[in-house]
Amino acid sequence: MTDQNLARAAELASHIERVHGANHPELTRVREITLALQQSGNETRTVELFNELRTLTHNYALPDDACEAFAATYQALERADRQRAS
């Protein structure tokens, strides 16, 4: 479910921002978008947020220094995005 994926991503987003944020400042915005997606009930806004997220993450591409939590966050976001689009 999209909600479960977003919940998982939101759970991890603060952690990866804290651990990797110095080298990946985009993670602050990833966290903000993830939280906004959880709260959004507006389909148009949701589409805009996922568009921004795909741009920001280069389509959920993991950097070389990504840890398991980083990977899990991006994977959950990507699953939520795919489920929303289908």
Score class of each variant (00 low, 15 high):
2 T>Q: 15
4 Q>K: 15
5 N>G: 04
6 L>E: 10
9 A>N: 10
9 A>G: 08
10 A>E: 13
11 E>F: 12
12 L>S: 09
13 A>K: 08
13 A>G: 13
15 H>P: 00
15 H>R: 12
15 H>D: 14
15 H>E: 15
18 R>K: 13
19 V>H: 04
19 V>D: 07
21 G>D: 13
21 G>W: 05
21 G>L: 08
22 A>P: 01
23 N>V: 00
25 P>L: 05
26 E>I: 09
27 L>N: 03
29 R>Y: 03
31 R>S: 14
33 I>S: 01
33 I>C: 03
33 I>W: 01
34 T>K: 09
35 L>P: 02
35 L>H: 07
35 L>E: 15
36 A>W: 01
37 L>W: 03
38 Q>S: 13
38 Q>V: 06
39 Q>V: 00
39 Q>C: 02
39 Q>L: 12
41 G>M: 09
41 G>Q: 14
41 G>D: 14
41 G>H: 12
42 N>D: 15
42 N>I: 06
44 T>R: 15
46 T>E: 15
46 T>R: 15
47 V>C: 07
48 E>Q: 14
48 E>I: 03
48 E>D: 15
49 L>N: 08
49 L>K: 05
50 F>V: 02
52 E>I: 00
52 E>L: 05
54 R>Q: 05
55 T>P: 00
56 L>R: 00
58 H>A: 08
60 Y>S: 01
61 A>C: 05
61 A>E: 13
62 L>N: 12
62 L>K: 12
63 P>A: 14
63 P>G: 06
64 D>P: 00
64 D>L: 09
64 D>Q: 11
64 D>A: 12
65 D>K: 06
66 A>F: 09
68 E>R: 15
69 A>N: 13
70 F>P: 04
72 A>D: 11
73 T>Y: 01
73 T>V: 04
73 T>N: 07
73 T>D: 02
75 Q>N: 12
75 Q>F: 04
76 A>Y: 05
77 L>F: 06
78 E>G: 05
79 R>I: 09
80 A>M: 10
80 A>G: 10
82 R>H: 13
83 Q>A: 13
84 R>Y: 09
